[in-house]
């Protein structure tokens, strides 16, 4: 059994059971995680983090598997975190991403961890970034973070990954879809997967046009790559595009780019922790229900609760202003 102490030390020595247990602690918001992680933080930052997102059934897991295969053929080690949705009704989850990564299971240079989203709505689990940090500290060269199948507005991956790959496939909408705000905008690399299916050429054209017109003023030209991960076609081009983006980010200043993402990460963590505290132990759920029963409006209640929180926050410097 994984001993409850010295996990950080054991992880540094390459103990994979310590790695597994630390991720579990991160997932469970176990207070022991933060304590152990302090020693690991200086080791974080070496791995390149590839986020893979897109609608359900676009072929994300299959692409992740092929990317891992390719990285392994170049003697790089790969850590994978794959997120699937938690049921909002039962709290349970069926985690099936690794079925598509079957042939990576016994490769000692690959570690796959399935995660349930557990109430987060941004496409990842709250602990996904922490899991990546632990894998990074362990020493994997590349990390791949696969989101749940997303709709149009789940962006958490943007702050958790260095390069965001958005995977789409033909048959899911016309050029108007490509014009909407949302998923396309978070992409550093766009992949049209299942590109052997009818409609792929059209989608490629639409995306190329959308990217060209909308991102004209950005420093990075988002490449649109055709792939068919099931037959390994185009996977090398996807990885090439990721490498090119990496070179771009490094040239622009990696540390400041990552720090900006970390700010967002802290922002999200704090928001969730705060909400958990207020709606759990503080009993706001029951309180709000009572107030609504008395006929107060949601808008009024939200304003009251906000001013309550704010009044606790007044530090002397803020009061002086």
């Amino acid at each position: 059994m994984a001993q409850a102490h010295n996990l950080a030390e054991r992880l540094v020595r390459g103990d994979r059971s310590a790695l597994a247990r630390l991720i579990t602690w991160a997932e469970n918001a176990d207070p022991r995680f933060a304590a152990e992680f302090v020693a690991l933080w200086p080791r974080v930052g070496r791995a390149w983090r590839i986020g893979v997102t897109g609608p359900p059934g676009a072929g994300k897991s299959t692409l992740v598997n092929e990317l891992a295969r390719l990285e392994r053929s170049r003697s790089k080690t790969v850590g994978i975190v794959a997120v699937d949705p938690t049921s909002p009704f039962t709290g349970g989850a069926l985690l099936g991403d690794r079925i598509r990564m079957d042939d990576r299971t016994l490769d000692p240079g690959v570690y796959i961890r399935s995660m349930a989203s557990r109430g987060s709505h941004g496409g990842l689990a709250r602990a996904s970034a922490s899991a990546c940090d632990v894998l990074d500290a362990f020493g994997f060269d590349s990390l791949v973070l696969e989101t749940v199948g997303v709709g149009q507005a789940e962006y958490d991956v943007l702050d958790a990954a260095d390069t965001v790959v958005v995977v789409l496939c033909p048959g899911a909408g016309d050029s108007i879809q490509a014009m909407k705000a949302g998923l396309l905008e978070v992409a550093d690399v766009l992949v049209v997967n299942k590109s052997d299916l009818p409609g792929a050429d059209r989608l490629l054209n639409d995306l190329n046009e959308a990217v060209h017109v909308r991102f004209l003023k950005r420093a990075w030209n988002v490449p649109v790559v055709a792939a068919s991960a099931g037959t390994q076609a185009g996977v090398e081009q996807v990885l090439e595009a990721v490498e090119a983006h990496r070179a771009h980010v490094v040239a622009q200043g990696l540390e400041s780019a990552r720090r900006k993402k970390r700010v967002q990460q802290v922002h999200h963590m704090l928001a969730e922790l705060l909400a958990e505290q207020l709606w759990g132990p503080r009993g706001w759920s029951a309180r709000v229900e009572r107030e609504l029963e008395l006929g107060r409006s949601p808008q009024e209640l939200a304003a009251t609760l906000l001013s309550e929180v704010m009044s606790c926050l007044k530090t002397p410097t803020e009061a002086q202003r």
Binding site: A2, R16, S17, A20, R21, I23, T24, T86, T90, G91, G92, A93, L94, L95, G96, R98, I99, D102, T105, L106, Y111, I112, R113, S114, A116
Partner: peptide
């Protein structure tokens, strides 16, 4: 309410144990 990981068919004992370990 449980988190269930399904291996898929035709797994070796080795692979099942390895998945159990990685997934804790």
């Amino acid at each position: 309410g449980m988190e269930v990981i399904y291996t898929g068919l035709h797994q070796t004992p080795d692979a099942i144990a390895e998945i159990a370990a990685q997934e804790d």
